[in-house]
Nucleic acid binder design. Structure first.
Lengths: 337, 337
DNA sequence: GCTTCCAGTGGGAGCGCTTCCACACCTCCA
DNA sequence: TGGAGGTGTGGAAGCGCTCCCACTGGAAGC
């Protein structure tokens, strides 16, 4: 710094030479390892300061076989998924936890062909110290690939059809059960569900929770009306529900977007909420709070999901063997049910 | 792949040996460089396939002095800034553009001390091929540091007090002017502004646009009522405005959040919008569309901002010298004005 | 007095890749 | 017939760091 801007960043050798020590000693000082005399330690520190020396992370990574970075990989075709408030919050949590471990965060979207190949290479080539993998559809090639990856992989949510060694998930079944029980406990018996994509574990698990609660209460579950987690699909599904079962008096929507869609259809159909039909969603995104009427929903700790994934990954990188985690959900009661 | 999971990833040397060629030839094949006979090229390709070889990116980075990654650095103390819809969209744009250039995206938040130091190291040590830097307050140490960085730096928005060599910004002055002119053109003369933080260039520029428009119309600009870009601060500022200037009939809020806050205060004060007071915001976030009444606002291409920053960075990394970019804004007319 | 131990030190061999260069060989044109 | 120029090839020198290991000399233990 003091020397102006050196055209080429200085190296450890130059530091060592300026300090009059060997490269080994200089290296030890930088990693504050023992076996360095006080005098030489100070000499090296002076040299570092004079040269404005900063270790080259690539060289260090090559020598230590640690990159100092973790990747958050999202499997999906739409690049704007990062703008989804759900993922945005996952990022916040992961970012904070990685910060604690002094790791960089790489964001990877396996959308384009090129992006997908890049992710494959990353998994197979030690381009990061570990990977957090999210949003896996059924038979996602990335999930298979992750098994033979050269590095630790933590799953966010469970992929369909396989139970990964390490994952963090939220209690989808329990949350859906609580939501359904809430509808039932208000005395309603004709309770249907708008379920999510059946090719995702989230969609399946939330439907399972609904069905469990219905059966436990001695009620006949409705055949699932499926949506794809969008507001539109929720509105469509609600319309179909009204057509097939005009007497429905409670609906559990597998996420807030679809719940809001259902609210819209109900309003347009002239049904009052919760008077005629009560609605419960899942996620507790901001949209649930500002819906009309405000949507009763199942809160899940999204930021916590990101944070715990990152923590688990850090544990793995440190050579530990953490156990999978299922984070609790809780019902948030608002006006819609 | 065919060989099961090798405990240690295979190296280029092993590929070369299996193919019966020298490491140089194998390297040339992998980078499909010329001067390789067809026979040897195929032999190497077979060996690569048999060993499931994937080049080690760290080693390549050390040799080529290119990391294959670009960083998006956000300067701010709140980790949840990534959940801000504005930044989320910037990320989407940047991610897409970097994908085209086959670069990884690193996300860095200079929030904690550790995070800040990590970013400093990144800038000074070639831990990435380039950096996109955002959200700089006045005298942000990062902006200074960026000047002596070891790598290309593109600014998103301009930092206060210095004009960086390369930046992408939106036309804040023009947008604010258009918003104010819209209010004036409706025949209103008593038009005030709720301006943003004066220690940001965005805040200053949007105020400048307001003032320009007022002066150009021969009107006296109101003294700026400042907020900090949050909904709350907008509500407060509007209350202050009503107290000091009860006859105000138009308000330009420097962003949508504050605009929505202003709407709330006006509603609570029993003023009709746009009947008594017209309001225009800035940003065109989703919140503007669902506000009550829907907020007239200035649209800015946020995703485009991210995309152009990334493109500019890629150009720099490629050794070109792109020119700074100012993206256009446009007025979106809704019910509030 | 001798071994034993250990803090302090520097030499040097990696880490896995790219790339410069020398060399062999072949073709082409004066 | 002799360069001149091009392709194909492998050896070897990096890139900038970590870390093992051999070595020294002084303190400690018997």
């Amino acid at each position: 710094m003091a020397e102006g801007v050196p055209r080429r960043p200085s190296t450890l050798d130059e530091v060592a030479e300026l300090a009059g020590v060997s490269r080994s000693v200089a290296s030890r000082v930088l990693n504050n390892a023992p076996h360095v005399s006080r005098a030489k330690r100070e000499a090296v520190e002076r040299a570092v300061h004079r040269l404005g020396y900063v270790p080259n992370p690539t060289a260090r990574a090559l020598a230590t076989r640690q990159t100092g970075a973790a990747a958050l990989v999202v499997s999906g075709e739409d690049p704007s998924i990062f703008a989804d408030p759900f993922f945005a919050q996952v990022i916040v949590g992961a970012s904070a936890a990685l910060d604690d471990a002094d790791l960089h965060l790489m964001l990877c979207l396996a959308a384009s062909d090129r992006g997908r190949r890049r992710v494959e290479k990353l998994l197979l080539s030690r381009g990061a110290d570990g990977v957090m993998l999210m949003a896996l559809r059924e038979d996602d090639p990335l999930a298979i690939l992750a098994q033979e990856a050269e590095m630790p992989v933590v799953f966010g949510g469970r992929p369909v059809g396989l139970v990964p060694r390490w994952y963090v998930d939220v209690d989808n079944v329990g949350g859906a059960r609580a939501a359904t029980e809430h509808l039932i406990s208000a005395g309603r018996t004709r309770v249907a569900t708008i379920c999510g994509r059946p090719d995702t574990e989230v969609g399946r698990a939330r439907y399972r929770g609904y069905r469990d609660a219905m059966l436990a209460a001695g009620l006949e579950p409705y055949p699932p009306e499926a949506g794809d987690f969008t507001e539109r699909s929720g509105a469509h599904a609600m319309a179909a529900l009204l057509a097939n079962h005009p007497d429905v008096e409670g609906v559990f929507a597998a996420n807030d977007n679809m719940g809001v869609g259902a609210l819209r259809t109900l309003r347009e159909a002239g049904r009052s909420v919760p008077g005629d039909v009560a609605v419960v969603g899942f996620d507790d995104l901001a949209v649930a709070g500002v819906a009309d009427p405000p949507l009763t929903t199942v809160h899940q700790p999204i930021e916590g999901l990101g944070r715990e994934m990152a923590r688990m990954l850090v544990a793995l990188v440190d050579g530990q063997d953490p156990t999978p985690l299922i984070l609790p959900t809780r019902l948030v009661t608002r006006a819609s049910a």
